[in-house]
Amino acid sequence: MSLDVLKQLAEQFGRALLRTHSERGDDTAVIEAAAIRAVCLWLRDTPELAFDMLTDLTAVDYLEQGRRPRFEVVYHLYSLPRRHRVRLKVGVDDPAAEVDTVSDLWRNGNWLEREVWDLYGIKFRNHPDMRRILLYEAFEGHPLRKDYVKDRRQPLVRRPAGEIAAALGQRPAARRSLI
């Protein structure tokens, strides 16, 4: 029953649909970036499909695989009345990676898109509140990009260097106070 979704997608969005596959039982459609909003809206509002839940929205960085475009934004949709799922993928490339927002179609899209912006640096056009969500504003870079070194920390606060050593060094050997 679920191949249906892909077939219907192909009928509706012939050219915007770049590839489809159903490996391991997961229906997947790769879509042109410009069409993602239209596809999502159509999937949500067509009564036979009724994808009323945005299960997940994330991105993948294919830098090490040398793929172009470098990023893929991945949407997982689920239909509670029909009990079927589909995965949509959209390729975006560096600099100025941008996709249209779906945060006005599903409410959790808002935070999920903020998370993708935070961790991957992919912007969402017309998003109402494109801020970092998991990290802090002072953070530079986007940590889940493959070229971000895993343990490159950007501390907000640290003790003064040498505080411990100085304190221990000055401590008189055997001296106690009343309080």
Partner: peptide, 26 residues
């Protein structure tokens, strides 16, 4: 949910956890 991407090696390219309570917090 777990969304995993593999490239044939011993380590994941992507290991995404779909957190249920994140959605509830939205």
């Amino acid at each position: 949910g777990f969304y995993l991407v593999a490239d044939g090696s011993g380590r994941p390219v992507k290991c995404r956890c779909r957190p249920p309570c994140f959605m509830q917090m939205t």
